[in-house]
Amino acid sequence: MSVRTMLDKKSWAVVGVSKNKRKFGYRVYKRLKDAGYTVYAVNPNLSELDGDPVYADLASLPEVPEVVNCVVPPEVTTSIIPQCAKEGIKYVWMQPGADCREAFALAEENNIEAERACVMVELGRL
Protein backbone atom coordinates (compact mmCIF):
# COMPACT_ATOMS: atom_id res chain seq x y z
CA MET A 1 0.00 0.00 0.00
CA SER A 2 1.26 3.42 -0.80
CA VAL A 3 0.43 6.82 0.56
CA ARG A 4 -0.67 7.75 -2.96
CA THR A 5 -3.26 4.96 -3.01
CA MET A 6 -4.84 6.36 0.15
CA LEU A 7 -4.74 9.91 -1.20
CA ASP A 8 -6.71 8.68 -4.22
CA LYS A 9 -9.59 7.79 -1.87
CA LYS A 10 -12.02 10.71 -1.64
CA SER A 11 -13.97 10.01 1.57
CA TRP A 12 -12.09 10.56 4.84
CA ALA A 13 -12.80 10.83 8.55
CA VAL A 14 -10.45 12.81 10.76
CA VAL A 15 -10.42 11.49 14.32
CA GLY A 16 -9.26 14.14 16.76
CA VAL A 17 -10.46 17.34 15.10
CA SER A 18 -10.02 20.51 17.11
CA LYS A 19 -11.56 23.99 17.05
CA ASN A 20 -8.09 25.40 17.76
CA LYS A 21 -6.87 26.47 14.33
CA ARG A 22 -3.22 26.03 15.37
CA LYS A 23 -3.66 22.35 16.28
CA PHE A 24 -3.05 19.62 13.74
CA GLY A 25 -6.54 18.20 14.32
CA TYR A 26 -7.95 21.36 12.78
CA ARG A 27 -5.24 21.85 10.16
CA VAL A 28 -5.49 18.29 8.80
CA TYR A 29 -9.29 18.50 8.58
CA LYS A 30 -9.19 21.87 6.82
CA ARG A 31 -6.40 20.86 4.41
CA LEU A 32 -8.30 17.74 3.29
CA LYS A 33 -11.52 19.75 2.81
CA ASP A 34 -9.69 22.46 0.88
CA ALA A 35 -8.17 19.75 -1.35
CA GLY A 36 -11.68 18.61 -2.34
CA TYR A 37 -12.11 15.53 -0.16
CA THR A 38 -15.35 14.60 1.59
CA VAL A 39 -14.22 14.85 5.21
CA TYR A 40 -16.07 13.90 8.38
CA ALA A 41 -14.95 15.37 11.69
CA VAL A 42 -14.80 13.00 14.66
CA ASN A 43 -14.43 14.17 18.27
CA PRO A 44 -16.80 13.14 21.09
CA ASN A 45 -16.26 16.55 22.76
CA LEU A 46 -17.44 18.76 19.87
CA SER A 47 -20.74 19.13 18.04
CA GLU A 48 -19.69 21.37 15.14
CA LEU A 49 -16.61 22.69 13.38
CA ASP A 50 -16.74 25.57 10.90
CA GLY A 51 -20.47 24.97 10.51
CA ASP A 52 -20.07 21.25 9.82
CA PRO A 53 -21.32 18.52 12.18
CA VAL A 54 -18.79 16.73 14.33
CA TYR A 55 -19.52 13.08 15.08
CA ALA A 56 -18.86 11.33 18.38
CA ASP A 57 -17.40 8.20 16.78
CA LEU A 58 -17.01 6.33 13.50
CA ALA A 59 -20.29 4.46 13.97
CA SER A 60 -22.16 7.80 13.97
CA LEU A 61 -20.95 8.89 10.53
CA PRO A 62 -23.57 9.18 7.75
CA GLU A 63 -21.44 6.93 5.51
CA VAL A 64 -18.43 4.68 5.92
CA PRO A 65 -15.31 6.67 4.95
CA GLU A 66 -12.63 5.07 2.81
CA VAL A 67 -9.80 6.36 5.02
CA VAL A 68 -9.60 7.27 8.70
CA ASN A 69 -6.93 9.82 9.61
CA CYS A 70 -5.88 9.71 13.26
CA VAL A 71 -4.69 12.94 14.88
CA VAL A 72 -4.83 11.64 18.45
CA PRO A 73 -2.47 10.13 21.03
CA PRO A 74 -1.21 6.61 20.17
CA GLU A 75 -3.44 4.90 22.75
CA VAL A 76 -6.51 6.48 21.14
CA THR A 77 -5.32 5.40 17.69
CA THR A 78 -5.04 1.86 19.06
CA SER A 79 -8.65 2.05 20.25
CA ILE A 80 -9.79 3.32 16.83
CA ILE A 81 -8.45 0.30 14.90
CA PRO A 82 -11.13 -2.16 16.18
CA GLN A 83 -13.81 0.45 15.37
CA CYS A 84 -12.44 0.68 11.82
CA ALA A 85 -12.54 -3.10 11.51
CA LYS A 86 -16.14 -3.19 12.77
CA GLU A 87 -17.19 -0.50 10.28
CA GLY A 88 -15.38 -2.19 7.38
CA ILE A 89 -12.83 0.61 6.97
CA LYS A 90 -9.72 -0.71 5.22
CA TYR A 91 -7.33 2.27 5.38
CA VAL A 92 -5.94 4.10 8.41
CA TRP A 93 -3.59 7.05 8.15
CA MET A 94 -1.67 7.88 11.32
CA GLN A 95 -0.30 11.37 11.62
CA PRO A 96 3.21 11.50 13.16
CA GLY A 97 2.78 11.14 16.91
CA ALA A 98 -0.52 9.24 16.58
CA ASP A 99 1.17 5.97 15.67
CA CYS A 100 2.58 3.14 17.72
CA ARG A 101 3.60 -0.48 17.20
CA GLU A 102 0.43 -1.76 18.84
CA ALA A 103 -1.77 0.22 16.43
CA PHE A 104 0.14 -1.11 13.41
CA ALA A 105 -0.07 -4.67 14.77
CA LEU A 106 -3.83 -4.34 15.34
CA ALA A 107 -4.28 -2.95 11.86
CA GLU A 108 -2.41 -5.88 10.37
CA GLU A 109 -4.43 -8.38 12.41
CA ASN A 110 -7.63 -6.78 11.07
CA ASN A 111 -6.49 -6.60 7.43
CA ILE A 112 -6.37 -2.81 7.56
CA GLU A 113 -3.72 -0.98 5.57
CA ALA A 114 -1.97 1.56 7.80
CA GLU A 115 0.45 4.35 6.95
CA ARG A 116 2.32 6.90 9.04
CA ALA A 117 2.93 10.24 7.33
CA CYS A 118 1.84 13.85 7.48
CA VAL A 119 -1.13 14.21 5.14
CA MET A 120 -0.48 17.93 4.75
CA VAL A 121 3.03 17.26 3.44
CA GLU A 122 1.84 14.46 1.17
CA LEU A 123 -1.00 16.54 -0.29
CA GLY A 124 1.58 19.20 -1.14
CA ARG A 125 3.42 16.65 -3.27
CA LEU A 126 0.43 15.94 -5.51
Rank of each mutant, 00 (worst) to 15 (best):
K90L: 12
E115M: 13
C118F: 07
E109N: 10
A105S: 13
M120H: 02
A105T: 11
A105E: 13
M120N: 06
I112Q: 03
A114W: 01
N111R: 14
A105Y: 01
I89D: 06
R116E: 12
E108M: 12
C118T: 05
E109W: 00
E102I: 13
E102C: 06
A114T: 06
K86F: 00
Q95D: 04
N110L: 06
E87W: 01
V92N: 03
N110S: 13
F104D: 02
E113T: 07
L123S: 13
E122F: 08
Y91E: 08
I112L: 08
N110R: 14
A85P: 02
Q95H: 09
Y91N: 13
C118L: 07
K90G: 10
E115D: 00
A105W: 02
F104T: 02
F104Q: 06
A114P: 04
K90Y: 02
E109S: 13
F104M: 09
V92S: 05
L106I: 02
V121E: 05
V92Q: 06
Y91I: 00
A117N: 09
K86S: 14
A114R: 06
Y91W: 03
E108W: 04
A114G: 09
E109C: 02
N110V: 07
R116F: 00
L123V: 12
A114D: 03
V92Y: 00
E113G: 03
E122R: 15
M94G: 08
D99V: 03
R101Q: 13
L106W: 00
C100G: 09
V92A: 07
N111D: 12
E102Y: 04
Q95L: 08
E113K: 09
Q95T: 05
E115S: 05
E115G: 10
V121W: 01
F104W: 03
K90R: 15
E113A: 11
K86H: 04
V121I: 14
Q95N: 10
R101S: 14
F104K: 08
E109I: 05
M94S: 05
I89H: 09
A98T: 11
A107N: 08
A114F: 03
I89W: 03
E122Q: 15
M120P: 00
G88N: 12
C118R: 09
